[in-house]
Structure formats: C-alpha cells, structure tokens
Computed example of a mutant assay.
Amino acid sequence: MSSQVIQLYEYHVWANKTVFEHLRKLPEEVWNKEITSVFPSVCQLMSHIYAMDTMWLSVMRERPFNEARELLMRLLDESKMENLEGVEKRFIETENKYRDFLNTCDFEKTIPLAHPVYGSVSTPLSGLVQHVVNHGTYHRGNLTAMLHQLGYSGVPTDYVFYLYTV
C-alpha cells in the first residue's frame, strides 16, 4: 500500500512540474492576466493548489482545523501575487515536506477530521493523500480551460502520461 500511495503522490509532483514547465514557455503576462473563470488568474489558481496542499499536510499531521485554516489563509495571501518562480519554489518546498512525512507515516492510520460546517469524519492517511492528488488533478483541468480561454494550449498531465516517465 505505501508504495502505491507514494507513487500517487509522485504523480501529483510530476504533474505540477509539467505544468510549471509549460507555463514558463508562455508569455509572462499569462501568469497574472485577469480572466473570468474558476479563478481570476493562473497565479491565483496555482497559489490555491499550493496552499491547499500545504494545509492538507498540516491536517495529516493532526493539526486542529482552526490552525490549518489560518495557515491556508496566510499562504493564499502571501502567494496570490507572487511571480511564477516564487510559487514554483513554494511547491518544491511543500513537496519536500510531503516526502519527509510520507516516508515515515503509517498510511493506514486513521485520523479524525473535524469541520465546523461538514461535521466530523475519520479517514486513513492514504485517503487524504488521494484527496490531495484528486484536488490537484481537478484544478489542473481548470488551468487547461483557463489557458484555452487566453488563447493557449494546456499540457497533458493525465496519470497514464506519468506512467510513461517512470
């Protein structure tokens, strides 16, 4: 099980890196160009993925909801106007923290999640890693749509393309 969970997370890392490689090839103004879409800019979408990834890691480390939410809001505020290189650096730092955590955790360990609106649930850590990966996949799809709106192509980041690289 642990190797599957780690491979799933490594797919997420690969997909994010593939996106950043693609974004570096586009005109610089694409990063902050305002757009009427799911997010107001590519920067804010990528900042969201980064901040949510980091927040979920704090949840996996069993931080209280209020602490995780404060972290999320702070990171969104810090990164929402950062340049591409700065947000990419943040992604890399978070990836390293995940690797440290994933290499030492028990994926079957069940942790409680308490949310003021949705209530309480318990889930194994492996399920939260899957959630992080699914969340990133969902928003990378949003990114492709946003880039098409701006007149640019997206980049394929499907899991099967990752498998061809490993």
Rank of each mutant, 00 (worst) to 15 (best):
Ser2Glu: 12
Ser3Trp: 04
Ile6Lys: 15
Ile6Ala: 10
Gln7Ile: 02
Gln7Glu: 13
Leu8Tyr: 11
Leu8Met: 10
Tyr9Arg: 02
Glu10Pro: 05
Glu10Trp: 04
His12Cys: 09
Val13Cys: 11
Ala15Asp: 00
Lys17Ser: 00
Val19Leu: 08
Phe20Ala: 07
His22Val: 04
Leu23Tyr: 02
Arg24Gly: 05
Lys25Asn: 13
Leu26Cys: 02
Pro27Cys: 09
Pro27Ala: 07
Pro27Leu: 09
Glu28Gln: 12
Val30Lys: 00
Trp31Ser: 00
Glu34His: 07
Ile35Glu: 13
Thr36Ala: 11
Thr36Asp: 15
Ser37Val: 03
Pro40Leu: 02
Ser41Lys: 08
Val42Thr: 12
Val42Phe: 00
Gln44Tyr: 00
Leu45Arg: 04
Leu45Lys: 00
Leu45Asn: 01
Met46Asn: 06
Met46His: 03
Met46Val: 01
His48Thr: 02
Ile49Thr: 01
Ala51Val: 01
Met52Tyr: 10
Thr54Leu: 09
Thr54Arg: 08
Met55Asp: 02
Met55Gln: 04
Trp56Thr: 03
Leu57Arg: 07
Leu57Lys: 06
Leu57Tyr: 06
Val59Trp: 05
Met60Val: 04
Met60Phe: 05
Met60Glu: 06
Glu62Ile: 02
Arg63Gln: 15
Pro64Lys: 11
Pro64Ala: 14
Phe65His: 14
Asn66Val: 10
Glu67Gln: 11
Glu70Cys: 08
Arg74Lys: 15
Arg74Phe: 08
Arg74His: 12
Leu76Phe: 10
Asp77Arg: 11
Glu78Asn: 10
Glu78Thr: 11
Ser79Ile: 02
Lys80Ile: 03
Met81Gly: 12
Met81Tyr: 09
Glu82Asn: 11
Glu82His: 09
Asn83His: 13
Glu85Ile: 03
Glu85Phe: 09
Gly86Met: 08
Gly86Gln: 14
Lys89Gln: 12
Arg90Val: 03
Phe91Arg: 00
Thr94Leu: 06
Glu95Ala: 04
Glu95Thr: 01
Glu95Arg: 03
Asn96Cys: 06
Asn96Pro: 00
Lys97Glu: 13
Arg99Leu: 14
Arg99Met: 14
Arg99Thr: 12
Arg99Asp: 14
Asn103Ala: 08
Asn103Phe: 03
Thr104Phe: 03
Asp106Asn: 14
Asp106Met: 01
Phe107Tyr: 13
Glu108Tyr: 09
Glu108Lys: 08
Lys109Val: 08
Lys109Pro: 05
Ile111Leu: 13
Ile111Phe: 07
Pro112Gln: 14
Ala114His: 13
Ala114Cys: 10
Pro116Lys: 09
Val117His: 15
Tyr118Gln: 13
Gly119His: 10
Gly119Met: 12
Val121Cys: 08
Val121Pro: 00
Val121Lys: 14
Pro124Gly: 05
Pro124Tyr: 03
Gln130Asn: 10
His131Cys: 06
Val132Arg: 02
Val133Lys: 05
Val133Cys: 05
Val133Ala: 01
Val133Ile: 11
Asn134Thr: 11
His135Met: 04
Gly136Asp: 00
Thr137Ile: 10
Thr137Gly: 06
Arg140Thr: 01
Leu143Gln: 05
Leu143Trp: 01
Thr144Asn: 10
Thr144Cys: 07
Thr144Tyr: 00
Met146Cys: 09
Tyr152Asp: 04
Ser153Ile: 03
Pro156Thr: 01
Pro156Phe: 09
Thr157Val: 12
Asp158Tyr: 05
Tyr159Cys: 02
Tyr159Gly: 07
Tyr159Phe: 14
Val160Asp: 13
Val160Met: 13
Val160Phe: 01
Leu163Gln: 15
Thr165Pro: 09
Thr165Gly: 08
Thr165Asn: 11
